Computed example of a mutant assay.
Amino acid sequence: MKKYKPSFNKPSANDDQGVRAKKHLGQHFLTDENIASKIADTLSYEGYEKVLEIGPGMGVLTKYLLEKETEVHVIEIDTESVEFLESNYLHLRGRIHEKDFLKFDLSEIFRDEQYAIIGNFPYNISTQIVFKVLELREQIPEFSGMFQKEVAKRICEKEGNKTYGILSVLTQAFYEAEYLFTVPPSVFNPPPKVDSGVLRLTRKENYTLPCDEKLFFRVVKTAFNQRRKTLRNSLKIFNLPDNLREDAIFGLRPEQLGFQQFIELTQKIEPHAISGK
């Protein structure tokens, strides 16, 4: 595999070269080189040759990604950050994409290729980033990065806990989720008001569902929208027959079900939901 060596003078994480953090973009620039290097090491770089970094800012994580045996692409919505990257990271020429990740069609960069996603994600769109990754999972075997700690914990949480919810179930149905380490506010500029957490998602060998996928998503979301109720009550919208609603699983609350049980629940509902019975 080709070794992509960085051809630039590495800017320091504390380099004050004029990129201003913008509140409306949720920007908090990481200033700790060791943590940046540690985040870059969370990916295995196996089974794919390209990595997409979301929101590189001034490139504190980017420079460590460029040292890996991979082709790095970055996507950044902030024009000022893009200009900084173009001036300081000449090796990235042609692979700096000034786009909104949530709206951009990634097939323009990656056709049918496998690639990983990494980043220090803006808190305000981090859950939306995960949902888009789930949609694109056929091409994304690995995903890692920094979230608000509470969100990262929720994604990795197991059933039976209060923080376990929609994002936990949907993510864990397709990926193995690992909470890796916590990052304090003091290593950001400006510092956020809460701790951050780094996680890793590794796609499961079998990442297709043995049930209707759209119905699975709908069942999970409907159940957790009234999480204090039993499934017998929260899933009334499906107009299920009385004999099915007497099944023991409908006496449980959503946080008591692991993703596999939600698959089984969807399989029970599927014949009735599709037929309209």
Rank of each mutant, 00 (worst) to 15 (best):
K2R: 14
K3A: 07
K10F: 13
N14Q: 14
Q17M: 08
A21E: 07
L25D: 04
L25Q: 04
L25N: 05
F29K: 06
Y45Q: 02
G47C: 07
E49K: 15
E53G: 02
M58L: 00
L61W: 08
T62P: 10
K68S: 05
E69P: 04
V72M: 03
I77S: 09
T79D: 12
S81I: 01
L92K: 09
R95V: 03
E98C: 11
K103I: 02
L106W: 07
E113I: 07
A116S: 14
G119W: 10
I125Q: 05
I129W: 13
E135A: 11
F143A: 02
V151R: 09
A152P: 09
K153N: 10
K153Q: 15
R154V: 07
G160A: 05
G165E: 11
F174A: 02
F174G: 00
V187I: 14
N189M: 09
D195L: 03
D195N: 15
E205I: 03
Y207C: 09
V219I: 14
K221C: 01
A223I: 11
N233W: 02
D242R: 13
N243L: 10
F250C: 06
G251Q: 12
P254G: 10
F259L: 01
Q261F: 03
L265C: 07
I269F: 08
P271F: 10
A273S: 14
